[in-house]
Amino acid sequence: MEQNGVQDYSKLFGTQVHDANTAFEFLMVAVFQPGMSWKVAASKLPVFKRLFANFDYHKIATFDEPEIESIESDAEMIQNDRKIQAVFQNAKAAVNLEPEFKDLADYFWSFKPADSEAIDRTALGTTVAKDMKKRGFTFVGPTTMGLLLTGIGILPRPHRD
């Protein structure tokens, strides 16, 4: 029986993530989330894990057309070819971050502000999204990147009153 992706994502959300593949997992949710709730995207984490080499972006970057077609035709996969293609493009872009950065997580952590409590989440999300787009990433908007930075613990979770 597959794990519940929503529970796994919720439990991990806001913890400091320094593992590159886990950072890519958060990036995948960010790619698939627009146009649906985060719960729908996160609920597919077990499917993503199965189809996308346990989030190993080095392996994903080497997938060829038969593997891509298999993923696109999987009945449990979110059927959005543009977002699926974005995963492959983002995997290649993540590999290309090296050797400038140790890995994808190191890249994200390079944006950690000195005072993360006073930071404007939207402004930082915009900065990260622009940098990522310059580096070949796609489906990385300011809002989802701000959320990703919170999800992997770079920015604090918003306070709830």
Rank of each mutant, 00 (worst) to 15 (best):
V128M: 08
T150I: 15
I68G: 01
L149H: 01
F108H: 10
T22M: 11
D161E: 12
D103L: 13
T143Y: 07
K49T: 08
K133W: 02
S43Y: 03
L155P: 02
N21L: 04
K92C: 01
L12M: 13
Y107C: 01
K102W: 02
L149I: 09
S37V: 02
G146P: 05
Q3W: 08
E65G: 02
F137H: 07
G146T: 06
E67M: 13
I60Q: 03
D56W: 01
D8I: 13
E100R: 14
S110P: 03
V95E: 13
F52L: 13
L155S: 03
G141T: 12
T127H: 02
G35N: 09
Q3T: 10
F137N: 06
P66E: 06
T62E: 14
K83M: 10
L27K: 05
E69S: 11
D106G: 12
E98N: 09
A20Y: 02
A118N: 07
D81N: 13
M77F: 06
L27M: 15
P142H: 08
E117V: 14
N21Q: 12
K11M: 04
K112H: 08
A129C: 08
I60C: 04
R157C: 07
F24P: 01
M145Y: 08
H58A: 12
E100W: 04
K112D: 02
N80H: 14
V6D: 07
L147A: 14
T150H: 03
G153I: 09
L104T: 07
K49C: 08
D19G: 05
S116R: 14
D106T: 03
D131C: 10
V95Y: 02
P99A: 15
A123C: 06
A20M: 06
Q33M: 12
F26R: 03
E100I: 11
D103S: 11
L27F: 11
D56K: 06
F13N: 14
T62D: 10
I119F: 04
I152L: 15
N54W: 00
V6H: 04
E76W: 00
H18S: 12
R160D: 09
F63G: 03
N96W: 03
I68M: 10
I78N: 04
Y9N: 03
T122W: 05
N96S: 14
S110R: 01
T122C: 04
A41C: 12
Y107S: 00
